Computed example of a mutant assay.
Amino acid sequence: MCVMAWLALPFPAAADEREDCEKLKGLASIEACTQVIEAGSYGANDLAVAYLNRGLENFARRDYDQAVADYTAAIALDGKNADIYNNRGNAYHAKRDYPRALRDFDKAIALNAAHALAYNNRGIVYGDMGDFDRAIQDYDQAIAIHPAYASAYNNRGNIRAKQGDFRMAVQDYSQAIVLKPSYVGAYNNRAMAYGALGQYAEAADDFRQSMALRPNETAKSGLAALEARIAAKAVDLTAAPMSFRRMPNTDLAGALLDTVTTDNLDACEAACAGNSYCRAYSFNMWNGLCFLKGDPAMRYLEPSTMSGLKSETYPPPISDAGIAMVRFRNKAFPGEPVRESQEKRFEDCEATCQISDTCVAFSFIRTEKSCRMFEKPGAYVSDAAADSGAKRQIIN
C-alpha cells in the first residue's frame, strides 16, 4: 500500500486537517480526510490524496466496500496513479472478487512496469485461484525488480509447497529469512516444509525460533504435533493390522513419493499400504489421481480430495489459512444435497454456502433458482443450466 503526501498547501488555515488526514491513523484520519473531501475548496490532486488515504484507513479497518469506493473516487481524479490501482486490487482481493482484483493489478503494472508490489499481489490472487504457474511467474518478476523482497520469496515458497516441491519451498523460505530475520511466518512455513521432508529436527528448531520471535498458535500447535508424531513413530506398531483413517474434504501437505492414476479410492489406499515409505495418501476424486506421501505436515480443506493416514501416523495440524470460494461455471455437483433453498442469484447461493458450517460445495440451478448445498461433493459434471462453487483452503 502507499500513503500519498500533499502536493501543495495553498490554504494555510486548512493545513491541519490535511496533515491529520495524512499522518493520523484510524477513525481520526478518516474524519480528517472526510473534512478535506467535503470542504469544497480543494483541487483534484488534493482530493485524490484524501480519498486514497481514507481508503487505506478503511481497508485497515476491513471495511472493504468503503475502501473500494474511496479508491475508485481517487482513480476518477488521478487515473494515472499505479499505487491507487494496486490498493484497490488489494481491496477487491479481500472481498474475494478475483476478476476485478486482477484487472486492477494489470492496470497498475501497465502504468508502472516496475511495480513489484503489484506483481506480488497479483501472484497471491493467481495462487488463490489455483493458477500456480502464473503465480510463480509473478513472484519471479517481483523478485527480479526487487531482489530483497522477502514477502515475494515467502509467497513463492507457499506455491511450491502446494505443488509438493518442498525442497524448493525450503530454499525460498530460507532466503526470506535471510532478508528478514524476524519473519515469523517464513519460519513457520519452513518448519512445515521441513516436516513434509521428514527433517523433524530442523522443523522443530524453526517452530521454536518462531515462538522466540513472537508467541503464536501456529508454531505452538505445530511443535506439539511434531513432538507427538515423533513419539508415535517410536512406538513399535508393526504387528498391528494395516488400517487407515479417512478424512473427507481434506488434502495433505507432505513429501510426494509417487502418483498413481486411478479412479478408485480403495486402489489408492492399497497402493499406500504396499509402500513402506508411504504414511498417507491424498485421492483426488475429481481427477482420478492418487498421491502417495511421506509424513504429512499439514491438512487443509479441499472438497475434491479424500485423504487417509496409516493407523500409526499422527494426524498433522489443521491449517489456519483462509478459505476461498472457487467457482465452476456450467458445472453441477451430482447427488443428494444436504440442504436446498431458493435463491435469486448465484452470488446469493454462494454467500449462503460460505456462512454454512455444513456446506462445502454448492450448485445453483439457474432455471429453477435452486441452491443445492453439499457436505461431501462428488466430482462435478457439465450442466449448461448450472453454476457451482466450492470452499477451498489456501495456504499463504
Rank of each mutant, 00 (worst) to 15 (best):
A379Y: 01
W286Q: 06
N287C: 09
S370Y: 03
E202D: 12
R214N: 06
Q354P: 04
A152Y: 10
N249H: 02
V338G: 09
N264M: 08
K369L: 09
A8K: 04
R339S: 14
A113F: 02
M325N: 02
M4Y: 05
R327N: 12
D20W: 04
R18T: 12
S210N: 02
V360Y: 01
P215N: 05
I395Q: 07
M129H: 01
A148M: 06
K180E: 11
H115S: 05
A108G: 05
A110V: 04
A69D: 12
N249E: 01
R246D: 14
T218Y: 02
R366Y: 03
Y183Q: 03
I143F: 01
L47F: 06
L27K: 08
A231C: 01
A14W: 01
A267L: 15
N264C: 13
V326Y: 05
Y149D: 00
I394M: 04
Q66W: 03
L197W: 01
K80N: 13
N158F: 12
K162Q: 14
A186V: 12
G294D: 13
C290R: 11
D46M: 10
G378M: 11
M1D: 12
A351I: 00
S282Y: 09
M4C: 08
E312A: 15
L309K: 13
I323R: 06
V381L: 11
V338A: 11
A390E: 05
D165I: 14
A273Q: 06
R167I: 04
D165C: 09
L9W: 08
F11E: 06
A196L: 05
E38P: 02
S319C: 10
A267G: 10
P303Q: 01
L265F: 13
A73I: 04
A351G: 05
R392T: 10
I145C: 06
N155V: 10
I318W: 00
Y194G: 00
S307Y: 15
A385Y: 01
G274P: 06
K80H: 11
A204T: 03
E312G: 13
M211N: 03
A273P: 05
C290D: 11
M298I: 14
R160D: 02
I37W: 07
P147M: 03
C290W: 12
R160K: 14
P377C: 08
Y281H: 11
A379G: 07
A176F: 15
D266E: 15
I323P: 00
G274A: 03
D128P: 00
G335P: 11
M298H: 10
L52Q: 11
F364G: 00
D133S: 11
A271G: 10
C2L: 11
A253G: 08
I143P: 07
I394W: 00
R134E: 07
Y139K: 05
I37N: 00
M242W: 00
E340Y: 11
L117P: 02
Y277H: 13
R214A: 04
Y149A: 01
L197R: 07
R392C: 02
G123V: 14
E57H: 07
N264I: 14
A270M: 04
S341D: 15
R279N: 14
A32V: 14
N284P: 09
R96H: 09
S151F: 07
R61S: 07
A255M: 08
T352Y: 15
E57V: 11
L7Q: 03
E350Q: 15
R372G: 02
G123S: 05
A384D: 13
D20V: 09
P12N: 08
I143R: 11
N86C: 13
L77N: 12
G254W: 06
Q35F: 10
